[in-house]
Simulated scan of single mutants.
Amino acid sequence: MIKSRTAIIRFISLLSIALVSVNTYAQKVEWLTWEEATTLAMNEENPKKVFVDIYTDWCGWCKKMDKDTFQNPEVATYMSENFYMVKLDGEGKDPIEYKGKTYKFVPSGRKGYHEFAAALMQGRLSYPTTIFLDEEMNMLSPVPGYQKPKPFLNIAKYFGDDIYKEKDWQAYSGKGK
């Protein structure tokens, strides 16, 4: 009986250490609503670019990117320091204001889509798609598809560090001729 209690206590201790290690790896990202981000971005005290993650509830790759990429400590830290981060449901129902226009949900097929998500994705409804906007809320680029942490961070730094102003993507990424 005493040996089994000792074994249980050891097991619980090891499990606690393992859970702490997992939680240390995962980084909590503070996601904002579109309204919160635009209010902060327009505040000249702390100007930052805006990053928009367009997802749907049914998208498996969106969930994988949340878990693998956005919770990566290096990615989460860089993004939090350089961007206001927005989660935008591509099938959301609430109207969104952007540059004097109101975008709404459009019923279509089984679900429908949000006009604002479609506009940001330039008509290509592909999830996940991440969007980079400058400090004045102008489109820098949509990036469709799942991105692993290191390639994503490379893209984020291209926009976040203003490298896009001096080099085109081909030259920056080493994919030029």
Rank of each mutant, 00 (worst) to 15 (best):
M65K: 13
I155P: 00
W58V: 03
T24Y: 15
N82G: 04
S13R: 10
Q71S: 15
K157M: 11
F132L: 03
N72H: 15
A156H: 02
S108G: 04
P47T: 07
S13G: 14
V50C: 04
I163V: 15
T77I: 05
T77M: 09
N46A: 10
S108Y: 12
G92Y: 00
K148V: 00
F51V: 09
E91L: 03
F83P: 02
Q71L: 05
N46H: 14
M121R: 08
K104Q: 11
G90M: 09
S141Y: 03
E97V: 11
Q170R: 12
L19N: 13
T77N: 07
G90T: 09
T56H: 02
T6K: 11
L133A: 06
Q27C: 11
W169D: 13
T77Q: 13
S16E: 08
T56R: 01
Y78S: 09
E36M: 11
M42E: 15
D89Y: 10
S4Q: 10
N23E: 15
K148F: 07
D168P: 05
Q147W: 07
P142N: 05
E30Q: 11
S13N: 10
D53Y: 02
T69I: 03
K48N: 02
K64R: 13
V52N: 06
V106R: 07
L120T: 12
E135M: 06
G92I: 01
S21F: 10
S141E: 12
A41K: 05
Y55M: 00
R110P: 01
V143W: 02
K99W: 02
N23A: 07
K167T: 11
P73N: 09
N82A: 10
N72W: 06
M79H: 06
I17D: 15
Y127Q: 08
N138M: 05
Q122M: 10
L32F: 01
I17F: 08
D94P: 06
